[in-house]
Nucleic acid binder design. Structure first.
Lengths: 130, 130
DNA sequence: TTAATAAACGTTATATTATAACACTATGTT
DNA sequence: AACATAGTGTTATAATATAACGTTTATTAA
C-alpha cells in the first residue's frame, strides 16, 4: 500500500548527495556540491530539504544543522527519530530500536500534552574515537 | 557539597532575562533586551549563553535555536535533557521524569557507542492550544 | 602583595544558516 | 481550455553564530 514517491529534479539531486554522503551534510555544502548541476541558490536547496524531510527521506540533525538520509525503512513520515552522534568525529547514526521508539511514543507528559512527534539525540564517542 | 556558582556581570544579566521570560528566548532578542545595560554585541550574549549552558543554568532548545532557564534543580550539569514543545504557541516545558531519564541514560546503542549525554524534544499541542 | 594565570569583557568584522518575495514553468485536474 | 498546485530560478536580506584582537578584572600561588 506504500505509495512510491516521485521526486522532482532538485529533490532527487539533493537526496542523491545526502544518500551518498558518509556523514551529515550542511545545506551550504550541498549547495556547493550541486552548482555544476545548475542549482545556484540556497532557496533551491532549502526547498528540496523541506520536502524531503516532509516525506521522511531525510532527517535534520538539529544540534548540527545538518541533514542525513533516513536509513530506517519504517519511517516514511518521521514522527520518531533518534540518533547517536559522535562528539569527536561528527559521525551520526540513526537509531532504530523498536522498544525505544515504542517507549517514547507512548510517553505522556503529566501536564496534559499529547505528543505527535519526538526527536532524540545522544552524544558520546563512537567506537573509533574512544 | 553543592558549590554555589558565582556568575559574572554579563552572565547574570543574561540569566535574569531568560529566567524572567515566559518562553524560550533567542540570542538576538536577549541582545535587544540588554542594550540599555551596555551590552552591544552578539559575542557578549553568546559567551554568556555558553557559560550558562556549561553550568546547567540554561538549556538550548535545538529545534528552535532558543534558550530556556533550567527548572530542574537536579541538573547542574545537563547530561540528560527533555522538553515538550508546543507546535502552536511555542511553549516549552522541561520534562523532569526520573524514570525517563534513567531509561535513556542507561540506553546503550548496539554499535558500541557509550553515551555521555542526550537531548530529547517532544512536539505536540499543549493543553491550551488543543 | 605582587607576579602570573585564567576568565571575562568590549569591539569590529565576518561567516554561516535560513527566509522573503516575485515572476515563471510544468503538471495535473475538472 | 481554464484553473489549481507544486516546483523552479533569482535577487535580496534576515537571523544565527563565530573569529580575532586587545583590554580589564578576578583568582591563585610564590
Amino acid at each position: 500500500m506504500t505509495q512510491v514517491q516521485i521526486l522532482s529534479r532538485n529533490q532527487q539531486i539533493v537526496l542523491d548527495i545526502i544518500e551518498k554522503a558518509k556523514g551529515p551534510l550542511k545545506a551550504y555544502s550541498i549547495l556547493f556540491n550541486v552548482q555544476k548541476k545548475g542549482i545556484n541558490a540556497p532557496q533551491q536547496i532549502y526547498r528540496a530539504l523541506d520536502k524531503l524531510i516532509e516525506m521522511g527521506k531525510i532527517h535534520k540533525i538539529e544540534s548540527k544543522n545538518a541533514f542525513v538520509a533516513c536509513r530506517s525503512s519504517d519511517c516514511e513520515i518521521s514522527k520518531a527519530t533518534a540518533f547517536s552522534i559522535c562528539e569527536s568525529c561528527e559521525m551520526v547514526d540513526e537509531i532504530s530500536d523498536a522498544k525505544l521508539s515504542k517507549y517514547l511514543s507512548s510517553f505522556n507528559h503529566k501536564k496534559g500534552m499529547k505528543f505527535k512527534r519526538f526527536n532524540l539525540e545522544f552524544f558520546g564517542l563512537c567506537k573509533k574515537c574512544k
